[in-house]
């Protein structure tokens, strides 16, 4: 859906309203492991998520393109990018990933947005104490 609103007031003025036009969605997720000391590299994390997609949606799911934009090994927090049509698939497989190498784990989805910029300014992170 893409609608071009209005209105040339003057030669230089232009306004365009884009509705649901974002090609990608961005997720900020954190992997919580039973054993906090387990180390997990970015490549291992991506492979782990692909396994989850394959378990839930089969080969078609495993072929879903998503990007691991940024990963912090210490907090196991990652920024993911996925095409908007694949968001529900990716999210549901993250939810159902319950075990990493025989230890219980869970993905906490911290923030989801069609704009990567929104992930840089989340007022819920404001700490004043």
């Amino acid at each position: 859906m893409r609608g071009d609103d209005k209105k040339d007031k003057s030669a230089g003025y232009q306004r365009v309203v884009l509705k649901n036009a974002s090609p990608y969605h961005y997720m900020k997720v954190c992997l919580v492991l039973e054993d906090e000391s387990t180390k997990l590299s970015a490549v291992e994390l991506k492979q782990f998520i692909i396994t989850g997609l394959k378990t839930l949606y089969g080969e078609v799911g495993a072929a879903l393109n998503f990007d691991l934009l940024k990963y912090d090994e210490d907090t196991r927090t990652a920024f993911l990018r996925v095409c908007s049509r694949g968001l529900v698939k990716l999210w549901s497989s993250l939810t159902l990933l319950g075990f990493y190498q025989n230890q219980a784990c869970a993905f906490r989805v911290l923030q989801v947005s069609p704009f990567l910029l929104a992930l840089t300014g989340n007022s819920r992170e404001l700490q004043l104490d």
Partner: peptide, 22 residues
């Protein structure tokens, strides 16, 4: 439909600070 995502809006506007109507 698993492809649907919630609505989002992006408004893009171009103008000039020198334009009185900005």
């Amino acid at each position: 439909d698993l492809d649907q995502t919630p609505r989002s809006i992006l408004v893009w506007e171009r103008s000039s600070f020198l334009d009185e109507k900005n």
